[in-house]
Amino acid sequence: MRRLLAAALIVLSQPATAQGIAVPFAPPTDRALVYRIEQHRPVEGATRRFSAIRDLKFERADQGYILQATLRAIDSDAPAAGAEPYRAALTPLIGVVLRFRLDGQGRIVGLDNVDAAWGAVQAGIDAMLATFAPDTPRHKAAANVQALFASLSPDGRLALLAGEVQPIFLFAGSTVEGGEGRGLRTVAGSPLGRPVPVEGTLRVVGQPADALDLEEKLAGAGVQVDIHYRLSRTSGLVETQQRSLAVGTLALTESRTLMPAN
């Protein structure tokens, strides 16, 4: 679950000749959206799939927006050792409506129904603990999640609950540089290994109609990260994200897709 806490990217350098491209923040308020995340990573010597589907809806609120996000379903083909921590972390959130408050620049600044949402999550964990015997993987995984949740501050709870939708707003209300792009520093490695510092660049690699294609390449001690983004120049939202992470001989791939609901 700790991997859900977003790491801030730090600008290292910005070429003097780079031309800034303004990114708006104007999410659609006239339609429902679906956000799909699918990840493939090694578990017990085989590549296993982990997926999650969320329903999203934006509405205007004061000078910003409310994002209503609901986890609809999760799935995994991993054996119990790999799947149970994932299921224990996310099952209590299925069907729970989270009303994130965003400012006019696309920053998540609060959760309007935090008490009700957190109460529903806690009830879900309690139900899992009561359902499964103490010596089962599911009970142990649920107990670990309960302990993690109990250790979080209010800011930590918000970061945890917002972690999987945060990448949608990665560039909203900001500027991206053309030309050689910009230098970045962050940490990477989890969930394949211990997080280590990585550095690299983010640059624009294409400008199709009403969109920007961005490429991020980062590297550190034994770690390589490649990310490709398709960014809407109308809404400022990341519509697709393709990530590959290599830690030594281990590899992870992840795709995120934001699209109108059927």
Rank of each mutant, 00 (worst) to 15 (best):
A221T: 04
A26V: 15
P191D: 03
A61N: 03
L98H: 09
K140N: 11
A211I: 12
A221V: 00
L192S: 06
A89M: 04
N144K: 13
D126K: 14
V187A: 08
P79F: 02
E215M: 13
E180I: 04
A8K: 09
T70V: 15
I168L: 15
R31W: 15
E84L: 02
A147Y: 03
A117W: 06
P191W: 01
G110N: 01
A209E: 11
G45N: 05
D213L: 11
E215Y: 10
R31Y: 15
P79G: 06
T253P: 06
T131N: 13
Q207H: 14
R185F: 13
Q14C: 12
E59T: 10
F169N: 14
Q105F: 13
V204Y: 11
G82P: 01
G45T: 07
A117E: 02
L152V: 03
R87S: 08
V238P: 02
Q14G: 12
E216C: 14
A172R: 09
R256M: 04
I74R: 04
T186H: 01
N113D: 06
D77L: 06
L98P: 04
G95S: 02
R41V: 10
T17A: 14
V97N: 08
D126A: 15
R182I: 12
A123H: 12
G156Y: 07
P42F: 13
A130L: 10
P197R: 00
A6V: 04
I37Y: 07
Q63P: 03
A142I: 14
